[in-house]
Measured scan of single mutants.
Amino acid sequence: WVPTKREEKYGVAFYNYDARGADELSLQIGDTVHILETYEGWYRGYTLRKKSKKGIFPASYIHLKE
C-alpha cells in the first residue's frame, strides 16, 4: 500500500459496491470517500458519512475530485 500523494484526496462513488470481506468498504452511489492509500487498482479509506469504518474498495468505482 502506498500513501496518497496529496494530503486531502477525495472521490465520489459512481457505482454501488458491496463489501465481500471484513477488510472491504461498502459504497453507495454518491458517497464521498477520503482516500488514504492506493494499491494495484484499489483504494483504502473511509466514507464521510461513516468515518469510523475504514476499508478497501475498487478504484474503478470512484471519480476523483480535483
Rank of each mutant, 00 (worst) to 15 (best):
S60R: 14
Y10D: 03
H34L: 14
I29Q: 07
E24R: 03
R6G: 13
Y10L: 07
A22W: 09
D18T: 14
R44G: 04
R49S: 13
L27E: 00
H63I: 14
S60Y: 07
L27N: 00
W42E: 00
T4M: 10
N16F: 07
W1M: 07
Y17V: 03
G41D: 07
G30A: 02
Y61P: 02
G30R: 02
K9P: 03
V2G: 08
G30C: 09
G30M: 04
Y17H: 02
A59F: 03
K53E: 11
R20I: 09
K9M: 14
L48I: 10
G45D: 01
K50R: 13
L25K: 00
I62W: 02
R49I: 07
F57K: 02
Y61K: 06
T38P: 01
E37Q: 07
I35R: 00
Y46Q: 03
V12C: 12
N16Q: 11
G11K: 03
G55V: 02
I35W: 01
Y15L: 15
K5E: 10
R49P: 12
Y46H: 14
L36G: 01
G21C: 13
A13G: 01
G21L: 06
I29S: 06
K54C: 14
D23P: 04
D18H: 13
T47N: 15
Y43P: 00
W42R: 00
E40M: 13
D31L: 06
V2Q: 11
K65H: 13
Y17S: 00
T4Q: 10
Y46E: 03
S52D: 14
S26V: 03
V2T: 11
A13N: 00
G11F: 04
K54H: 12
E8N: 12
W1V: 07
I29C: 10
K51I: 10
L36P: 00
K9L: 13
Y15E: 15
G11N: 01
Y10V: 08
D18P: 05
A13R: 03
Y43L: 03
L25W: 04
F14H: 13
E7N: 14
Y17F: 08
D23S: 08
T32H: 13
H34R: 15
Y15K: 15
E40W: 09
A19P: 05
K53W: 06
H63C: 15
G21M: 08
W1I: 07
H34C: 15
R6C: 14
R44T: 04
L64W: 04
L36M: 09
H63W: 12
E37N: 04
D23G: 12
E8S: 11
E40H: 08
F57W: 03
I35P: 01
Q28W: 07
I56F: 12
Y61A: 15
S52M: 10
I35T: 01
E40R: 11
W1R: 07
A13F: 03
G45S: 05
K9S: 14
D18G: 05
S52C: 14
Y46F: 08
L48K: 04
Y15G: 13
I62A: 01
T4R: 06
Y43N: 00
S60C: 14
T4F: 09
Q28M: 11
K51R: 11
F57R: 01
D31R: 02
L27M: 01
V12T: 08
R20P: 03
A13S: 05
L27H: 00
G55K: 03
Q28S: 10
L64K: 00
D31N: 04
Q28D: 06
E8D: 10
L25V: 07
Y39A: 10
R20E: 07
K5T: 13
A13H: 02
V33K: 00
I35A: 01
R6V: 11
E7Y: 13
I56Q: 04
T38G: 06
K50E: 15
E8F: 12
L27D: 00
A22I: 10
H63P: 01
H34D: 00
E24V: 03
I62F: 01
D23W: 11
L36D: 05
D31Y: 05
G45V: 04
E66F: 12
T32A: 11
L48A: 07
A59L: 04
F57N: 02
A59M: 10
G30L: 02
K9D: 04
N16G: 08
Y15A: 15
A22F: 10
L36K: 02
T47Q: 08
T47F: 05
W42H: 01
G41L: 06
R20H: 07
I62P: 00
F14W: 14
Y17R: 00
L25Q: 00
T47H: 10
W42C: 05
V2I: 13
P3H: 04
H34K: 13
K54V: 15
Y61M: 13
Y61S: 09
G11L: 10
D18A: 12
D31G: 02
W1K: 08
R20W: 06
I62T: 02
E66W: 12
I35K: 00
G30W: 07
A59V: 08
T4P: 09
L64P: 04
W1D: 07
S60N: 09
D31V: 06
I56D: 01
F57Y: 01
G30N: 02
I35Q: 00
L25I: 14
Y39R: 15
L48S: 09
E24A: 03
T32R: 13
D23V: 06
T32G: 07
Y17Q: 01
V33M: 03
E37S: 08
K65Q: 12
E24I: 04
D18N: 12
E7D: 12
D31A: 04
L64Q: 03
K54L: 14
G41I: 05
T38H: 10
R49W: 11
D23A: 08
V12A: 02
S26K: 03
R20D: 05
A19C: 06
W1S: 07
A22H: 10
H34W: 14
F14M: 15
H63S: 09
D18R: 12
T4L: 09
K50H: 14
Y17L: 00
T32C: 15
A19G: 06
I56R: 08
I29T: 06
A13V: 13
G45M: 05
H63R: 14
W42S: 00
S60T: 09
A13M: 03
K50N: 15
E40Q: 13
A22M: 09
D31F: 08
T38C: 10
K65M: 15
D31T: 04
D31I: 06
K65A: 11
K9G: 05
S26Y: 04
S60K: 15
S60L: 08
S52W: 14
Y43M: 08
S52V: 07
I35S: 01
F14S: 08
L27T: 00
A22P: 15
L27W: 03
V12R: 06
Y15R: 15
K54G: 06
Y39V: 07
E24N: 02
K65C: 15
I62N: 01
E66G: 13
E66C: 14
H63D: 07
E8P: 10
L25M: 04
A22Q: 11
K51S: 11
K65S: 13
Y10N: 02
L25D: 03
T32W: 15
K50Q: 14
E66M: 13
N16A: 13
E24S: 03
Y43D: 01
Y39I: 09
A59S: 13
G45F: 07
